[in-house]
Structure formats: structure tokens, C-alpha cells
Nucleic acid binder design. Structure first.
Lengths: 207, 207
DNA sequence: CCCACTGGATAGTGGCTCTATCCTAGTCGC
DNA sequence: GCGACTAGGATAGAGCCACTATCCAGTGGG
């Protein structure tokens, strides 16, 4: 298919497609001759991926670009999924570049939950976040952290098993990123509802 | 104190302070005469609040403005806190304006957890989100929702009790917004770590 | 007395994500 | 053969956001 059809089938304007091509998010089509190019199903799924990452997950172009580059470079799946996690949850938006920082609280969580004691982006980000909370004067007690980690442990146990990885790289990223984002938001919204519910119950009791 | 001192004590440039004044985020100082104005501690704490909402929580000026307006209008605390929750968690960013939409899954959660069955922003937002996930083809089983809601119920039970509301409105918003944001992020990061940990364990077992 | 500071006004900056316009060369279909 | 259309390349502009800078005229504290 050519550019216009690509545009019509995805709902993305030709101008935007050109823009993505310029930015290297979308690989150039197979050039039939000087003024005609042929795009494949791969372009279609990639364009849909870009749209999903932008509109649903809310990633910026730089993050999308680096994910797509990894996919194109044939980075191993586990590594790719780790990158997706980093991008979707913004694990690298705060200072996690200072090597492996540790916090007593973070270490305690890992020990207590019997999680593997290895460095990871998630762990660094958690530690950085704990340090941030500390510095902003928001207390994080061990009890609180235990309750939180027990809860998320239960959540993780449930939805790790529901993961089936598709073969196509575009779809792998799509599934992983969209799923991660939506599940994260779901937890946040449930938490909001839980908070509101507890607050109402408490308020009613007092009243 | 005058503008410059306000600037020095908060680290916000005079130009930005003027900007906030223009935008109405910061009330004008007591005008001593045509070319001199006096700012109080209230201005200081409000400016710090604005900074925290921008830099830590990441709210945009419109949201900050509406929160501050509510505070100034002497809106009741519970209502104010609800608005904070809406702003911080972005509950109103998706279509929750269509009245009270319900989903079977959302209702089931409320019944199952024995949460009060009343409409709320959090609930509407949850239902909208469930509908979104549905429409994007991301399945949400009842089991999953039960596991999630049980987990967040436990979390909410722990940190609702740790809330002490300060008297000053600026500080109330500050504490609530910053706390909400940081705790939400903490849960997300713990969840990421939990996922990673489960994935590692699973991978190691397979290998 | 004068200089730093004031409020008010207006304009500009920089990042980000597009969107529009113009051009030439080329081809598909009639 | 010819005209409507299309690709690609280049470049400019738009629109939003959160500032940031500049200019101004007035004035009170040191």
C-alpha cells in the first residue's frame, strides 16, 4: 500500500506520517521508484503501535523512538520488556543514574518479601523514590511498606500468570506497554476508590 | 516582605512570581503604595504550595488554579480533598462527565469489598477505565479485580489512619496532594519491582 | 537625591507535536 | 499523450504551555 492508504487505514494524517518518517519512528517504505513507495503490514502495525504509545500510554517521541530502536536492533525480549517497564512507569525520569543506590527500607522490602536480591531499574527507582519521600518529609514506615509490598506481591502473582507474549515485536511492545499502563492506572483508581470508601465509612462513624 | 525577598526565600524567580500574580495563582500583596507591596507568610506558603504542585506532583496551572480557588472560596475540607484526589490522580482527564456510568465489574468490586455503594469521582473514573480497558481488548477478569481490590483495600486501611490534617489550607492541600502523589507512585514502583521479581523467579525456574 | 525596587504591560523563548505549503519529478489510468 | 494525482524533500508555521525578558514610569529608603 502507499502512504495515503496507510493514512486512511490508521486514521493518522499523511502529514503526521511524513513527520514520523522524518523522525525515524517509522522506517521508510520500499521505494518503488523516485516518487512512489510501498508500505507493508509491518508499517501498519508499527504505526498503530506508535499511536497507542502516544495516545493511550502517553509516551513522548523520544521514549517511543528508543523503544522502537531496541525492537529493530533485535534486543532480547526480557531486556525489551524491561525497557518497556522503564518507559511506561517513568522509572528513569528521576535520578536513577547514580549507579545502584540502596535504602534500608528498600532492602528490607526485598528481604521480607523474599524477592531476588538483585539490582534492577525497578529497585533503583523504588529506592530513589523512597529517598525522595524522605527528603520531602513524607514518612514511610516499615509497617506501611510491608502492607504495600504484600499487596503488590499478591497483584503481581495474579497478573504475571496472565501474560502471553505474542511473536510480532510490535505487538509484544503494544501488549506489554498498554497492559502495563492500564493495569497501573487500574490499581491507582482502585486505590482512590478504596481511600474514598474508607474515608466515607470513617466519616459516617464519626458523624 | 517584598517581592524580591519572597523570590529569594523560595528560589522562584521574580519574573515567575509576577507571572503567578498575573495568572491569579498568587493573590496580590498588600499594596503599601503605588510602587511597593508587602507579602506575608501566607504568600510564602502559597508559593511553596504552587511549586510543590508543579514540580513534585506535576499538575498544570489550570488544575492548580482551580484547587487554589476552592481553597480561597472556603470550600469544605472533604470536598477540597475530593478535588485534590481528582487533580492528583487525573480522575477527570477521561470521560467521567457522562453522569454516573456503571460497569458490572465495578459494581461487583464495590459489593464484594463491602464498600459504600455511592457514586463518586473515583468510582466513575474506575468504571470509565474498566470500559476503556474493555474497548482496548485488555481483559479484566473478576478474579483479577478481586485480587487488586483486596490488595488496595489493605493499603487504604493502613494509610488512611496515618492522615492528620493540618489547619492551614495551603498546608492541607500540600500534604494531601504530595502525599497522594508520592504514595501512588510508591505503589506503582513497588508493583514494578514485584513484577520484575516474579518474572525473574519464573525465568530462573524455567532455565 | 538617587538607585534599587515596584506593578503593569507586552513580547519573546524553548520545548514539544504536529500541520501546512511549495516544489519537482514521476506515474497511473483513461 | 495528458492530466490528475502521488511521493519525497525541504522548510515554515501553528498551537499549546510555562515561563522569562524587557521596558516603563513612579517612588521611598538609605
Amino acid at each position: 500500500m502507499q502512504l495515503k492508504e496507510l493514512s486512511e487505514r490508521t486514521g493518522v494524517s499523511p502529514a503526521s506520517i511524513k513527520f514520523y518518517l522524518r523522525e525515524g519512528l517509522l522506517p521508510p517504505g520500499r521505494s518503488v521508484h523516485a516518487t512512489r513507495a510501498e508500505y507493508s503490514e509491518h508499517h501498519l502495525s508499527r504505526l498503530e503501535l506508535i499511536q497507542a504509545l502516544r495516545r493511550v500510554v502517553g509516551l513522548n517521541m523520544a521514549k517511543i523512538g528508543s523503544l522502537l530502536k531496541m525492537a529493530d536492533d533485535g534486543v532480547p525480549r526480557l531486556e525489551l520488556l524491561a525497557a518497556v517497564q522503564r518507559a511506561v512507569l517513568g522509572l528513569d525520569d528521576v535520578g536513577t543514574e547514580h549507579g545502584d543506590l540502596r535504602t534500608p527500607a528498600g532492602d528490607a522490602v526485598v528481604r521480607f518479601r523474599n524477592w531476588p536480591d538483585v539490582p534492577s531499574d525497578a529497585r533503583n527507582s523504588l529506592n530513589a523514590h523512597l529517598a525522595l519521600m524522605e527528603s520531602l518529609g513524607v514518612p514511610v514506615t516499615e509497617d506501611l511498606l510491608n502492607a504495600y509490598s504484600q499487596a503488590v506481591d499478591a497483584i503481581a502473582a495474579v497478573n504475571i500468570s496472565a501474560t502471553t507474549a505474542p511473536e510480532d515485536v510490535n505487538q509484544l511492545i503494544m501488549t506489554a506497554a498498554v497492559g502495563m499502563h492500564l493495569h497501573g492506572q487500574l490499581v491507582l483508581k482502585l486505590l482512590a476508590l478504596a481511600h474514598a470508601s474508607h474515608a466515607i465509612r470513617r466519616y459516617d462513624k464519626d458523624a
